[in-house]
Computed example of a mutant assay.
Amino acid sequence: MTPQPFDAAQDLADAPRIGGAQRPKDAATLILTRGSDQPEVLMGRRAPGHVFMASKWVFPGGRIDRSDFAAASIADLSADAARRLAAELPARRARALALTAVRETFEETGLILGRPAPSASVAGPWREYRQAGALPDLSVLSYVARAITPPGRTRRFDARFFMAPVEALRDPDRIEGSGELDEIAWLPLDEAQGLDLPAITRFVLGEVAERLRRPDRPLPFVRMVRGRHVVEHRD
């Protein structure tokens, strides 16, 4: 699958401008991959009632939570992921965003990215994950893309996209959606491109296909500068 240029016009149509000034909120997404000859990705369709990107197919993810800064893990980010993130934000926040991706994926799909650990009783959003007897393994995450929602939208996110192989999941066949995604499926990359996708998701799918062949590919950063979309690539 050949990577496509970022579709700026579609991005504006995905979330029309409504005016007003909002600072982007930090968020994280997890792209789970399966297979090598015909790679697949795990995607979900957002429920129709959502204010933002309703009925679109997306990767699991969401906003950072205060609890993500204090959540335990069994292994830290890899040197490469930590280096790439360190160019953008402090190490503590980078780690929290990686944990956000793990937590949100669990909340939306029931899938546990982590290793077995004694069950623990904690308060807040990590309660069910820890009760399941696991700790996140951040070392399996690759940092693959960053995108900031254009100004004036109903929601604005500074989203970091992480990627991990299916082998990092404790029980990859046990998908239990929370309802935020009304359908969840493993999809071949080419088939996924034919779905109703946000422009950024379509763009990142192409990046994923390339990164599976070339892990050291420069990281794309998509944002709007002076009213125009810009895509920078950073080593």
Rank of each mutant, 00 (worst) to 15 (best):
L89C: 11
L99H: 02
P90Q: 10
R46V: 12
G152K: 03
S36F: 07
A192T: 02
A132V: 02
S142W: 00
P165V: 00
R23I: 12
E128K: 10
E183H: 13
A132H: 03
M163I: 04
Q131N: 08
E40A: 10
T154W: 08
L141S: 01
Q22R: 15
R115E: 15
E210F: 09
P215Y: 06
V144F: 06
A164T: 07
L42S: 05
P5A: 11
A101K: 02
I18F: 07
H229P: 00
P3R: 13
W186C: 08
F59N: 00
P3H: 11
G114P: 05
S178H: 04
P24S: 11
D182Y: 09
R234C: 08
A87Q: 13
A13P: 03
L99D: 00
R17D: 15
D7Y: 10
S139Y: 04
S55D: 15
R217M: 11
F106T: 01
P172L: 05
P188R: 06
R174H: 12
E128Q: 12
E232I: 02
L97T: 01
Y129N: 05
A117F: 06
V230E: 15
G35A: 09
E167V: 12
L89A: 14
R211K: 10
A91R: 14
I31Q: 08
P90C: 10
G227C: 11
R226W: 13
L77Y: 01
G62Q: 02
F203N: 03
H229F: 15
A147T: 08
A209K: 08
D216M: 08
Q10L: 15
V51G: 14
F221D: 10
F221S: 11
V140E: 03
W126G: 05
A132D: 07
A147Y: 09
T105K: 07
A28N: 00
E108I: 09
A15G: 06
V41L: 12
